[in-house]
Computed example of a mutant assay.
Amino acid sequence: MPAHEQINYVEFPARDPDATRRFFERAFGWTFEDYGPDYIAFSGAGLDGGFFRADLAARTDRGSALVVLYSARLEETLAKVVAAGGEVVKPIFAFPGGRRFHFTEPGGNELAVWSEPDA
């Protein structure tokens, strides 16, 4: 049962939903369900959501919220993102809580991945 007044679902624009699907399946193992030609829902990502066909993309330089994934092995995850067709837009950098990188997926949306600081 969904938690009362808690974030339950997130939706992103996608210029090319099929390319976006292939990327997230390959890089992160997310699963998808089609809801017509212009919408795909995803699960297996920690929070369910979907992608709707649009000409826009969610980017922080345009004021979008940033969705941040977690990785126990940051460099491995970065390699998977690149191998799946993602583009690194901010290489790994340190921040007070750890390390992270930002990437865009083939649909143009920017996301980030973080990990704890190096020991």
Rank of each mutant, 00 (worst) to 15 (best):
A27G: 05
A27E: 08
A83C: 10
R73N: 15
E75T: 15
F42V: 02
E5W: 07
T31G: 14
D16M: 05
M1I: 14
H102M: 08
Y39A: 07
E105L: 06
S64L: 05
G49E: 10
A65F: 13
A3Q: 14
G36Q: 03
P2Y: 12
P96N: 01
E11Q: 09
G97T: 11
V10M: 13
T60M: 05
R62H: 12
F51L: 08
S115M: 02
E5T: 13
W114Q: 14
A27T: 02
R59K: 09
G46Q: 09
F51M: 10
E110D: 12
G86V: 05
D48N: 15
P106Q: 09
F95Y: 12
D18L: 14
E33F: 00
V88R: 00
A119S: 10
E75S: 13
L78N: 05
D55I: 02
E105A: 12
F101A: 11
L78R: 15
A94N: 07
P91D: 15
R100V: 00
A79R: 12
E25K: 11
F12P: 02
F103H: 06
G97N: 09
V113P: 13
A65T: 09
A94S: 12
I40Y: 04
E87K: 14
D16G: 01
L69T: 03
D16W: 02
R59H: 05
R21V: 11
D34V: 05
H4A: 13
N109I: 03
E110R: 08
F42L: 04
D38R: 10
F93S: 05
I7R: 07
F52G: 08
V67G: 12
F52D: 01
G44R: 06
F93Q: 11
N109C: 07
E116M: 09
V88G: 06
D34Q: 14
A94C: 00
Y35T: 11
F103A: 13
F32W: 07
V113Q: 06
Q6R: 12
F51W: 06
A84N: 04
I92E: 06
A54Q: 05
A83F: 01
D55S: 11
A54V: 04
D38Q: 10
A83G: 04
H4I: 12
A84R: 11
G86N: 11
R100I: 00
G85S: 10
L56E: 13
E11I: 10
Y39K: 04
A58P: 00
P2M: 15
A119C: 00
V68F: 11
G63R: 08
T60H: 10
Y9G: 01
P96G: 02
R59G: 06
F101G: 08
E75N: 09
Q6I: 08
G108C: 03
V68E: 14
H102S: 11
D118Y: 00
I40L: 14
G36F: 01
F32R: 03
P96S: 05
D48V: 12
A19M: 05
L47G: 02
D55N: 09
A54L: 01
F42Q: 01
R15N: 08
E105D: 15
E75C: 03
T20I: 02
H4P: 00
A41W: 00
R53H: 01
F52E: 01
D16N: 15
R59M: 07
A27Y: 06
Y70P: 00
